[in-house]
Design a protein around this nucleic acid. Structure first.
Lengths: 340, 340
DNA sequence: AACAGGACCGAAAACGTTTTCGTGTTGAAA
DNA sequence: TTTCAACACGAAAACGTTTTCGGTCCTGTT
């Protein structure tokens, strides 16, 4: 087992000082061409690579960015990550991902660990529980320590930092408008409870679209779901015996469950009822009927977030710009679950 | 902006030495109860947390494990990761994830970077390109440096290390046997080209099942796909005009594409033709008809891999056990794409 | 001959820890 | 009074780098 080569070993081997080796490898003019060549040849031969940990300690920067997400088994987050990865790698950063499983405590612990030297900055979408509790001290703390923080997707208005969001309200409005254009009169909404910011905003978009078109809002057609795990059953029950010809769901799953429920009732999608979802996952594409949906451009969100963070990281002390909020536009992908 | 508190600052503040502070915080008996209390109170008050980088440098271990996967937008890998995360976190490790995008070069670079101090060991599923090239020097190197390595899913026989795999052959055989039991006579196979190890093994299982049941193998019913992106079209063409009453696909997507192709031909699944897939993703569950499929238990694979790695990491020098290969059993989930 | 200045290199500090070893003070035993 | 442990603490090395500051030559100029 050959251990990793260090500067010290090279120095001893070639009978020079550690400083000389370091300088030679970094092409300092202080070192004669002769010794520089000798050292570099030796280093190359034995495949010397500097120790990142030592570098991090010295430079007080790790060149890695920490990503905190609530869950990883979720197509949207994986697309965001891949956007982050791409930009980060281009700029010579790497990425640590931590998953909170939507637990507040785990989010706090993860942040604390990463903040203690492992990471130069954060990209985070907060856990559901965090939004619910409204306790953001861990976010405040890392900011106070001078670590840049970029929030995406589930952002918190009270926190002053860079943000990347989508126009949830407009996206939802587009979706519902599409249903209205398809001549739907009784449009149902499947949303989440309000403390999840996206649920709230998409609900707002739904309401605005109806208002704009002078359609009276029927509270009976709105379902706010708390328990994901039981949502399939809940949706089935909710849709029973309701006169509905259009439905907007704030995510993919709810939309699929709704379609299945309709089908079970003998209704045809999109002939009898049109359905629009949110988030363009695999499911939307491959399901039959394929799902008309609001596309969130996850990779773009991730890329923008990474760009914002790196910009902050690389700005000189004191000359940081003010915080930005980038809004990534949503698009409506028309497929076979709606008439047009 | 209050910078992170260090031992040195505490020492200066309380007028003791750095060593005293360190010892006090670690409850050394060397330090009098008085000063110990004083120091701990101060540290707690100002929320002292040791710097991980410095600790890593000192201890020459980072307490993080590196995970290298070919792609992240893939349900199977995300389940594996979540299994790894869970076990790792339980044991006080955290996890760095790097994605190779199936590129050999990126895999090599990622390993090199992580190997230089960022990580104590690796869990890896190699890139497709790596399997194709057969160049494993980067794996050999980290092993020679004494870093434990656990491979999963796409493993390489030539490399001597811990492995976690599923019984691809048996899984495939189960799937095909299920089709045979459902009275299928002409069973097609949608696989990948052979250098992808899982494709090869699952193909083998298919062949074995047919042989066991004395069914002659019809090469015309076997399609080996190279280009994922064009697979939908390729499958559609392949299935045209073939007399088929059963189909086994080595992944979810191929199975869905096949079902769509059959449907387009006017065939009913499962009445006219039964279909079995591999990998239990969201799609399989929610597609209509829902897909009978071989369940890979991704989380279990991840958990086992993490356990193996940590065991190696925490074994004393020299007393490591031999390398293990854990086989995680597959299960067949029967749904509506097959008769029974 | 004296000196300036450049070329080349090494010592040491620094990053934030932990740990080994030493040292001074105390109190008690001899 | 001397001696010796026990006690409480500090100095310093170590992990692997980078960088500043000197230091030693040598060369060429007055």
């Amino acid at each position: 087992m050959k251990k990793k080569l260090t500067l010290k070993q090279i120095a001893r081997e070639l009978d020079v000082s550690v400083s000389t080796v370091s300088k030679a490898l970094r092409d300092s003019v202080e070192i004669s061409e002769d010794t520089r060549h000798k050292i570099k040849a030796f280093a190359k031969l034995y495949n010397y690579k500097p120790n990142n940990i030592a570098l991090s300690l010295k430079n007080r920067r790790t060149k890695t960015i920490g990503v905190l997400i609530p869950e990883i088994i979720h197509h949207f987050f994986t697309t965001v990550i891949s956007g982050i990865e791409q930009v980060a790698n281009e700029k010579g950063y790497h990425v640590i991902i931590c998953v909170s499983n939507n637990s507040f405590d785990k989010e706090v612990v993860n942040m604390e660990i990463l903040a203690n030297g492992s990471t130069d900055g954060f990209i985070i979408s907060v856990a559901k529980e965090t939004q619910q509790k409204g306790d953001y001290h861990h976010l405040q703390e890392v900011i106070e320590q001078g670590m840049p923080l970029v929030m995406f997707d589930r952002v918190i208005d009270e926190i002053n930092c860079d943000k990347v969001i989508i126009d949830d309200v407009i996206g939802a409005r587009k979706a519902v408008q599409h249903l209205i254009n398809a001549n739907c009169k009784n449009i149902a909404l499947l949303s989440t409870i309000d403390y999840v910011s996206v649920g709230k905003l998409r609900t707002q978009g739904y309401l605005e679209a109806l208002n704009e078109n002078n359609i009276v809002i029927n509270e009976n057609l709105i379902l706010k779901i708390e328990d994901y795990d039981n949502s399939e059953h809940e949706i089935k029950e909710f849709l029973k015996g309701k006169k509905i010809d259009g439905l907007f769901a704030v995510n993919e799953h709810f939309a699929i469950y709704a379609i299945n429920a309709f089908t079970a009732q003998g209704l045809k999608v999109p002939d009898d009822v049109s359905v629009v979802g949110f988030t363009n996952g695999e499911l939307s594409k491959l399901f039959i009927p394929s799902l008309t949906t609001v596309n969130q451009h996850g990779a773009e969100i991730g890329a923008q977030a990474a760009r914002l963070l790196i910009k902050k990281l690389e700005s000189k002390e004191g000359e940081e710009d003010a915080f930005e909020t980038i809004i990534v536009e949503t698009g409506l992908i028309q497929r076979n679950s709606t008439k047009n």
